[in-house]
């Protein structure tokens, strides 16, 4: 069913400062003890790749991401990074949440400075780096605002800046634009593509929006009914006009078909 191809060569983002991580799941059972939600998952994200994961609500997308982040141990099977088993969360895998994960008592800049402080950077360097990232996500001038003064879209920009400022080797994104209106979401997708261009990070991006998955992903993994049901390669990733391409239309149809009820 799924069209497996060697994607290690498709990474278009070369001359990268931080090499992306290769993260993988082997025959993994995921969930909380006694309540596994995913079984027999085999999945690998190649260095520098954007792998999107789509599936209906409650299919275990967030569980998959939290496992990859090291926040949840796999119930069975293996979670690996560059071939070594993962032992816990770490600075090399940043997580971007759908819900508001900014610390509300820290200004936008202080939020972005947090991973830098954890890495032990000095005050001046921290501040400069944070301001650079905030400018890159289009928030210059809002550095000193508290999160509750920012809009939902602006808060997700700060989250993005905070995740990337720590120079992670992998960015795990849990429906980061799910709560935004359609127009803001399209803008955020574009912004994500632009800011990722400068990094070499591997991205695993979870969404329930098939169009978002097709736009952002080099490959799309399909989740459903407690298992990984397929992986598709996207013909023209991150090109807006690829949407009308017959190949994309066919792939979109194929994905909806395998995700949705058989009757549709």
């Amino acid at each position: 069913m799924s069209t497996e191809t060697d994607i290690s060569t498709t990474a278009s983002r070369t001359d990268l400062p931080t090499p992306g991580a290769r993260i993988g799941l082997t025959d993994a059972e995921l969930g909380r003890p006694g309540a596994a939600v995913l079984h027999g998952v085999d999945l690998e994200a190649a260095p520098g790749e954007i792998l999107t994961v789509v599936g209906p609500s409650g299919c275990g997308k967030s569980t998959l991401l939290r496992t990859l982040a090291g926040l949840l141990p796999a119930l069975a099977g293996q979670v690996t990074q560059d071939g070594r088993p993962l032992t816990g969360p770490g600075a090399d895998r940043a997580l971007v949440f759908q819900e508001d994960a900014l610390l509300p008592w820290r200004t936008a800049r202080a939020n972005v400075e947090l991973p830098l402080a954890i890495r032990g950077l000095g005050r001046a360097e921290r501040r400069a780096t944070a301001e650079q990232w905030l400018e890159r996500v289009g928030l210059a001038g809002l550095e000193r605002q508290l999160p509750h003064r920012l809009s939902g879209g602006q808060r997700q920009r700060v989250q993005l800046a905070r995740a990337l400022a720590g120079q992670p080797r992998a960015v795990l994104m849990d429906e980061p634009f799910g709560a935004l209106d359609a127009q803001t979401r399209a803008g955020m997708q574009q912004l994500l593509v632009e800011v990722l261009r400068g990094t070499g990070a591997t991205v695993v991006f979870v969404t329930h929006d098939v169009d978002e998955a097709l736009f952002l992903g080099d490959r799309v993994a399909l989740l459903g009914a407690g298992a990984l049901t397929g992986i598709r390669t996207v013909p023209r990733p991150r090109e807006r006009d690829a949407r009308a391409d017959p190949a994309t239309v066919a792939l979109r149809h194929d994905i909806l078909e395998s995700l949705g009820p058989r009757t549709s």
Partner: peptide, 25 residues
């Protein structure tokens, strides 16, 4: 909110960092 702690953990923060940067404030 558990996400605050998870955010700090995925930035490489340990338990003391979580205590100082999330729990107390």
């Amino acid at each position: 909110a558990p996400v605050w702690e998870e955010a700090v953990l995925t930035m490489g923060g340990g338990r003391w960092r979580v205590l100082a940067s999330v729990v107390l404030p």
